[in-house]
Design a protein around this nucleic acid. Structure first.
Lengths: 229, 229
DNA sequence: CGGGTACTTGACAATGGTCAAGTGTGGTGG
DNA sequence: CCACCACACTTGACCATTGTCAAGTACCCG
């Protein structure tokens, strides 16, 4: 059964029994979204949650004058929209596909039943929500205690880390979306990136970034100012 | 048994069975902290979590140059420090008593066992973490999409709401701590409060705030500028 | 190849942070 | 009960960072 193969690739469900997987597979549905399509909007009634099979999804808030703050970018194997299952009923933010994406949709009802029956799922869910909280703890810290150059440097280092410390990085999102993720504007990102470029700390070609001076980048992520070229 | 009476006042444990309460009571300990005392620091190994019996506790992050961002202020019945139980091992932020406080300490080991046995506790924990996530969602939104006057106005309205819509509010924290909670400085808070005062939107005497123009305050919380007196 | 979106760069403005100095104010000990 | 001291708060002047607006360039997709 194809859908079962998909389900076990989602980490929080990887340890389900044969029977649980089967009953899940009868209610799970696959949905596809094109680039730019809305998956749900803030305030929508939540009837279940999603997992990403392929593609990229952004979770974000909008201000009254249209500025957006991205909270997360979710990709392969990530789940999202699970918060309203346990608290409140409505989605607290918006979700839009930023690439063509295939998602699995899990209806709320059976999931809650499953969690009540199987403590290991509950524990995985608890651990998932806890890492989400850790992430937000850090996001809040970054937004309010660090200046934009430090946030950007930290983000580049983070990308390098995911790639096992590689110096060659390719942005998976546009610079505009990056600015929204870091709580700033495309102009500011542009300016800081070219400063980093001019100071020989990175080399940039389109979406590709090469870290030249790893240590310098780390210092900036800790708050050191960028020399004015 | 006094300690059992304390435990059942913590919402997530209110529905425990007699037996569960008893076994909990043998491992739970009560701890007291004076104003200003550190409960734990970021990076400390977490051996359990806390619940507030009385007093007030702030959870916060520090920047390199000493600026603090308060993430939460927890009071009666709230639990904190539970994230490392499910993800990672270390506390992601600092906790300090801002009033003389009595706390319950729950060691990690037995708690995890309890959760695995009793799905209702797991569900309460999931719901607790989910509201925490909702709160952070909002905090991030506020910090990055709203200006300080809007944040402050929203906070005053929030306090009014807790008091059932009363117009007379007493700050439970100092204005310095309020500024840290709102991601700004005491000076900025001072200036905005006196502007609100001069414009007849609030009346302020020390820690007491009286809302005069409720609608005006709501408009400011939505981003309207404060007239220059 | 064309059209639209993303990005860059410059000039400017404004929000809010910092530093400094002065004014309360509450709690403690004499 | 009062005086004093430490701490919280206020107010002013200044300035850094970053947002905004505008215009031009590059780039990608169809």
């Amino acid at each position: 059964m194809k859908i079962i193969d998909s389900i076990i690739k989602i980490p929080i469900f990887s340890s389900l029994s044969e029977g649980q997987l089967k009953s899940l597979s009868t209610i799970v549905s696959e949905k596809s979204f094109n680039k730019g399509e809305t998956i749900f909007s803030q305030g929508d009634e939540a009837t279940g949650f999603y997992a990403v099979l392929s593609g990229l999804v952004k979770i974000f808030k909008l201000s009254l004058n249209g500025k957006e703050q991205i909270l997360h970018v979710f990709g392969n194997g990530n789940i999202f929209g699970e918060v309203p299952m346990f608290s409140g009923e409505k989605f607290p933010a918006n979700a839009v596909a930023i690439e063509k994406s295939r998602l699995l949709f899990f209806p709320k009802r059976l999931l809650l039943k499953l969690i009540k029956e199987d403590a290991t799922i509950a524990m995985k869910m608890l651990s998932e929500l806890s890492s989400r909280l850790r992430y937000f703890t850090r996001l809040v810290e970054d937004l309010s205690l660090k200046e934009v150059p430090a946030r950007l440097a930290a983000y580049i280092l983070y990308l390098s880390n995911i790639k096992g410390g590689s110096n060659d990085i390719t942005l998976s999102i546009t610079k505009g979306q990056l600015s929204s993720l870091l709580g700033t504007t495309p102009e500011t990102i542009s300016r800081i990136l070219s400063k980093l470029n001019n100071n020989g700390i990175i080399q940039m070609h389109g979406k590709k970034i090469k870290i030249i001076d790893y240590q310098g980048l780390e210092e900036i992520s800790r708050g050191k100012k960028i020399e004015n070229y």
